[in-house]
C-alpha cells in the first residue's frame, strides 16, 4: 500500500518545500521507499533544496506526456537510500499537470512498491495546488504563527474537504495534520506571536509537530541538504519527532517552551 502525503498551506514561503524534503528524507532514513514530487510547475525549487538540481534530466511533465519514463525521471537522493526525487518542469505550462496524468504517475509509483509519496504543493489555490491534494491520503498543513498563514491554511482545509478524491467519492476523509513552522517560543511566551495551541484551536485539526524558527534551515538550503540532516539542531530533532508521531510513536513536544537564559548564558552569549 502506498500512502500519498500532500504538504500544503495555501500561503507561500511558510516552509512547504523545506518540510517536504525533510519529511521525505526522514521516512526514507527509517527504511521506507519514498518518492518526493515537486508540483510547482514553472517555479521548481525542491531540486535545489534536495541538492540534486544538476542531475535533473527529465521532469514530472515529461513523464506525464510520455517523453520519458518514470525510471528515467526519478533522481536517486545522495543522502538517503530509498529516496527518489521527481522534479517539476521549469518550462512547461502549469496546465500540463492533468489529473489523469498525475493519477497515472502515482499509480505507477504504487506499482513500483513505494511506501510513501510526498507531494510538495505549490502555494495558492489554483490548479497546481488542487491537483497536488486531489489524490492525498494524508495532508500536512504547514502553518506559520501569523494571521495570513492561519487564514490561508483554513482555506486550503476547505478545499481538501471538497476537492480531494476521498471527499468526492465519499471515502474516509483525508487525514489532516497541522505542522506549525518558524515558531519562536520566546515571542509566543511574550504574547507577541500566536501560540501553537492558538493555531490548533483556530484550525481544529490535530497537531503533528512544531518546528522552531532556526538559522539551520537557511544553512541547509544553502548547501542543498534537507534540514533533517543538520545533526543536533532543534529543527532536525523536531522533524524527527514529527515523523515519529506520524508513524504512531509518542514524542512530547520539544522546543516550544521558552527558557529564560541563565546569568552565565546572558553574559557570555552562546546558542
Amino acid at each position: 500500500m502506498t500512502t500519498i502525503i500532500t504538504v500544503t498551506s495555501g500561503k507561500g514561503g511558510v516552509g512547504k518545500t523545506t518540510t517536504s524534503a525533510s519529511i521525505a528524507s526522514g521516512l526514507a532514513l527509517r527504511g521506507f521507499k519514498t518518492a518526493v514530487i515537486d508540483f510547482d510547475v514553472g517555479l521548481r525549487n525542491l531540486d535545489l533544496i534536495m541538492g540534486c538540481e544538476r542531475r535533473v534530466v527529465y521532469d514530472f511533465v515529461n513523464v506525464i506526456q510520455g517523453d520519458a519514463n518514470l525510471h528515467q525521471a526519478l533522481i536517486k537522493d545522495k543522502h538517503a537510500d530509498n529516496l527518489f526525487v521527481l522534479p517539476a518542469s521549469q518550462t512547461r505550462d502549469k496546465d500540463a499537470l492533468t489529473e489523469e496524468g498525475v493519477e497515472k504517475v502515482l499509480q505507477e509509483l504504487a506499482h513500483q512498491g513505494f511506501d510513501y509519496v510526498v507531494c510538495d504543493s505549490p502555494a495558492g489555490i489554483e490548479h497546481g495546488a488542487v491537483v497536488a491534494l486531489t489524490f492525498a491520503d494524508v495532508a500536512i498543513v504547514v502553518t506559520n504563527p501569523e494571521v495570513s498563514s492561519v487564514r490561508d491554511s483554513d482555506r486550503i482545509l476547505g478545499i481538501i474537504q471538497s476537492k480531494s478524491r476521498r471527499a468526492i467519492e465519499g471515502r474516509e476523509p483525508v487525514q489532516e495534520h497541522l505542522l506549525v513552522t518558524r515558531y519562536s517560543p520566546k515571542r509566543a511566551h511574550d504574547g507577541e506571536m500566536l501560540t501553537y495551541t492558538d493555531i490548533q484551536e483556530l484550525l481544529r485539526i490535530p497537531l503533528l509537530g512544531v518546528i522552531p524558527e532556526s538559522e539551520a534551515v537557511l544553512q541547509a538550503s544553502n548547501q542543498g541538504i534537507p534540514a533533517i540532516h543538520q545533526k543536533d539542531t532543534p529543527v532536525a530533532d523536531a522533524y524527527q519527532d514529527t515523523i515519529g508521531r506520524f508513524l504512531g510513536e509518542e514524542h512530547p513536544l520539544r522546543f516550544v517552551e521558552y527558557e529564560k537564559p541563565g546569568l552565565i548564558k546572558r553574559l557570555f552569549g552562546g546558542k
Binding site: R151, A188, G191, E192, M193, L194, D198, L202
Partner: peptide, 13 residues
C-alpha cells in the same frame, strides 16, 4: 512590547 497575539487570535476567530 505590546502583546498583540491575542488581537490576532480574536480577529482570526
Amino acid at each position: 512590547k505590546k502583546a498583540t497575539a491575542s488581537v490576532a487570535k480574536e480577529r482570526l476567530q
